[in-house]
Structures are given as C-alpha cells and as structure tokens.
Design a protein around this nucleic acid. Sequence first.
RNA 1: GUCCUCGUAGUUAAAUGGAUAUAACCGCCCCCUCCUAAGGGGCAAUUACAGGUUCGAUUCCUGUCGAGGACACCA
Length: 558
Amino acid sequence: MSIVLNFKSYLAELFARALREVAPEQVGAIVLIERPKQAAHGDYACNLAMQLAKPLRKSPRDIAQALIAALPESDVIEKVEIAGAGFINVFITKTAKQAIVHTVLHAGAGYGHLHLGAGCKVQVEFVSANPTGPLHVGHGRGAAVGDCLCNVLHAAGWEVTREFYYNDAGAQIENLMRSVQLRCQGVTPDDPRWPEGGYRGDYIAEVANAYMAQETVESDDQHVVGKGDIFDTEAIRHFAVAYLRREQDLDLRAFNVEFDVFALESALYSSGKVEEAVQGLIASGHTYEQDGALWLRTTDFGDDKDRVMRKADGGYTYFVPDVAYHLDKWRRGFVRVINEQGADHHSTITRVRAGLQALDAGIPQGWPDYVLHQMVTVLKNGEEVKISKRAGSYVTLRDLIDEVGCDATRYFLAARHPDSQLVFDIDLAKSKCNDNPVYYIQYAHARISTVLELWGGEHLSLLQANVGLLDSEYETALLQQLIDYPQIIELAAEDLAPHLVAFYLKDLAAAFHSYYNASRFLVEDEAIKCARLALITAAAQVMRNGLALLGVSAPDKM
RNA sequence: GUCCUCGUAGUUAAAUGGAUAUAACCGCCCCCUCCUAAGGGGCAAUUACAGGUUCGAUUCCUGUCGAGGACACCA
C-alpha cells in the first residue's frame, strides 16, 4: 500500500506523467486537481482534458480517454470516470483513505508540513506600530493575521523571519516627547497649554511618572534608565520610546506573538542607507529638482503623480527611508517579502515599489507582496466601543485580551478574510456556547482527550489498529477531513490567507462532533475500539496542528 | 473628484475560473437511563444591478449603485 501524504499533489504527478505521454508539446499546461463538491463526482477531479481541447483541437472526452489510458498504475485509485463536459473524476480506494490514520499518527506534529517553500527565506513584516502608545485593535488584527501567516508559511516549508519596523525619531516621536515632558511638569491634556497633536491618553502620565522615578526599562530591543531631568528632551524621548516599546512587547507576548528582528528607522539614517538609496535614485536618472525640492518620477512606474523625496527644508519624506528599508531587505537575501499592514497604508505600495524599480537593483516588479487588512470595529452589548480609558482614543489590544482571552481574540481577528471589514463582537467572543467557533473547536479536542483518558490505554498501541474497520459514513467523513488538511495549508500559504485554517478547523470539529454523537468509541469489541480510538487520536493531532498555526490552545479539559 | 478593498440566505460569513453556491446564528421540529447537550439530526432561505470574456463566472473585465478606506514638501 502506497503511503500518500498529500493526495492532491500525488494525483497531480500522475496526471502530469500521463500528459507527457499523451501530449508532450503541452507539458506546460497546469495540472489542476480539485475536490468536487459532490461525492458522486469522485474524491478528486481533473479538468486537464477541457483545458487541452482547444490547443489539441480534439473533443475533451477523447482527450480524457487518452489521459486515463496513460495514467500510471496506482493502488490508491479505485476507479476513474469521465463526466460532464470532460471532467476526469478519480475515486480513491477505501484502504488508501483509511491509511491516513496511520500517516497522521506517524507524522504527528509534522503532519501538514510541506515543501512548497523549499526552505527559501521569506520575511514577513507586520504590526510595525510606532512607539507612541499601546497597540490598538487594528494592530491586533495585524498581529493575528501576520503571525498566523508566518506559521502557515513555516508549515508550507519556508524559512520565516518575523520583523517589526518602527519609527523612533521624527514628528510623532517629537509629539510624544513633548506630551511626556508636559506630564512631568504636571500639565494635563485639558490644560490650554496642551499642544494640538499631543498624546492625551493616561498612559502618558505613566511614562512621565516612571521617568521621574528613574525607573529602568527593558524591552525586546531597548534598555534605558529614566533620568528624571525635565529639560533633557533627548533623555525623555529615548525613555518614552523604550517604555512604550516595552508596553507593546508585553501586549504582544500576552498575544503569543514574538518577533525575530526589530528594525529602527533611525538606524537607516545613521548607517547611511537612506543617503545611499537617495544617491542610487539620483544616479538612476529618475529624479529632478523643482520648487527647491527633490522629486522622484514615480509616474515612470505607474504612480499617478510624482513624489517629493527631499523637502524644501532639506528633510526626507517618509517614503525615502521606506525605500531604503526595502532595499535593505532585498540585500539581506529575502527573495520574498510580505508586508502585512492596515489598508490605510495602501497608498505607500505604489511608491515603495516604484522607488525600488527606479533603483534598478534587480528587484522584480511587484516586489514586495502586501497583505492589507481592513478596519476592525468593536461591538459590545450591541453597541460600538470606541474609547479605551487608558489609551484615550481607541480600543487597545490589551482590552480585548483581558476581556475575552488570548485564544478567542486571536481566533476572531484571524478568522476572516483580511480584505473584508471585521466586526469584533465581544459578547460573542466571550460566550461559552455553540455559536462561538473557538469553543466549538476546542471542545472537540477536549472531548477526544476525555475519551482517551477514560480508555487509559497506551497510545502507541493504536499504531497497530486495524483501520480497515472504519467504514461508517461518519468515519469516512472524518477520514476525508484528515486527508484534506495538507491541501488547506497549501491553499492558505499560496493565497496568503490564514483564515482558511480557521474555517477548516470548524469543519473538522463538526465532522468529529457528528461522529461523537452517532457512535460510541469505548465499545466491547477490542478491534473496533482500537480502530475508532486511532481515528479520533489522529483527529485530535490534526486539531492541535491546525490550532497551533492559529496560535490558539488545544485544551484537554474544558 | 481620483485611486484601493468589499457587496453572497433575515443576520454574520466561506467558496484555488468548474458540475446541484457552503456553514453558523435566528425561526420551526426532533435527540441526553449515553465517552462533557459548550453536542447532534431535520425544515426553510442567498451570489447588489447591467453588460462582456469563457466550453463553464460568486470568482476575470467594463459600467451603475451601495459600504469602508486612501488621496500633504505628515508618518
């Protein structure tokens, strides 16, 4: 019996071989294997014959006939049929499906790991919040989507680097410094002296108090001691940045998100990378001077108007360090880079890509990739929540974690397509009943754990189970879910769509709950009991694997 | 005004260009002497509109309408 880890790619290979025989000149055709929606259409379907109909000037059914004849022998294929306009429907043998139980039990946490990335390096930049306050819900969505995406890419075989970029200098940081300085002097936001762009949240007072108390602050990438000097703006600035970075680190840690690299905008200046990028752009001939400013002709690369690089006052606009930063990513060997950001940043995409093209550094067009997530609104008691007491003007990630827990927060923020707007319903996320998908999935895992504990046997003995006894409609459905898992990873990785994992887990849990309700596992017949326990042990394994990608726990008891 | 994303059952959402569009919630009806009813089974209900490309369109293209966002020598 062949051991098949991934049926889809296995069949794709068989059809590719048939294609080489039937139409060698068409080997460029894309062999697509899909899961039909209806069971009558088999377990897998291939549309190759319809694709080839036009170039080969033959009827799809004739081509299908030839492909089937050329299909290599395989003991996992029960039968092959031609249907409809020319679909080739493949039916998998029961034995091959049942074997998935042993495949999963043997692979364990490695089940679902693929080699799509072939160990290539990919860098994912996400969150990238400036250190001017606690992280808000939007950052939370970025953190959840970005981190899950990293997990999925890792599972798909990429070598992933998680990176967080932030601005530790510039106008917003200046505002932050002044706000803290005023708080040190006892001035509050309701005072007429409070500046226009000042930060009004209560956390500014906390920063000021810590600075005056000469506290020590350590974040993932900063270490500083408060000087307590109200007039040393440099010391205040440095302290405030470190303090708020640490706050964000604590939020992220509570959210199970860890970064490999923190990149600072100021470092791009001090290392000369910004200047180097500017010189590169000037040398490329895509710049010009006008009205005392230096412009980049981004319209050469699809932008709707040219952009200023160096302002008349001599300072660079923000997109220049952005370009320098991305050039640096490229030089660090990241052939693939994905930026996960809020959709309000979409206007930077064209500019950054244009700047990189203008540099003529061999960077491919359309590099880097972007995943933009839409707005999050928070709902509680049916009403929109806008204010957090501590932050002043927005709902913080910490508010959500404290209120509904890390698991539910991660699940809800990652379980929707990034492109669609998200309403975070706090009451739903908190509810411990069946309309809450997080609990629904976790409950399935807990149920399996309970059964296995009651059984009390040695898990290793399940490797000997006779899975040929798994034959009911519920068992078949659950087997199929287990078989589908690697393909979900593949899809999620290719589409940069981690939410697919969340949907899959709901389906997997549903298949288990139905099975649970319809059958007993701890039955008299030893062989049947072992077969069933082996199946649900495998199901629990896949639940753990999938939940791990989402960063959600898989409890044994609830 | 220009650009970007989205428009799918009453509601919230899935669907790599494939065959009869999938779930959950709500509503109605059923199932615990049972390994957790935080569960299961059933009924009803959907692609905004108009064109186009295709053997085939929820998916791609154009336009209209609707929701959100972006449009600084701010970041």
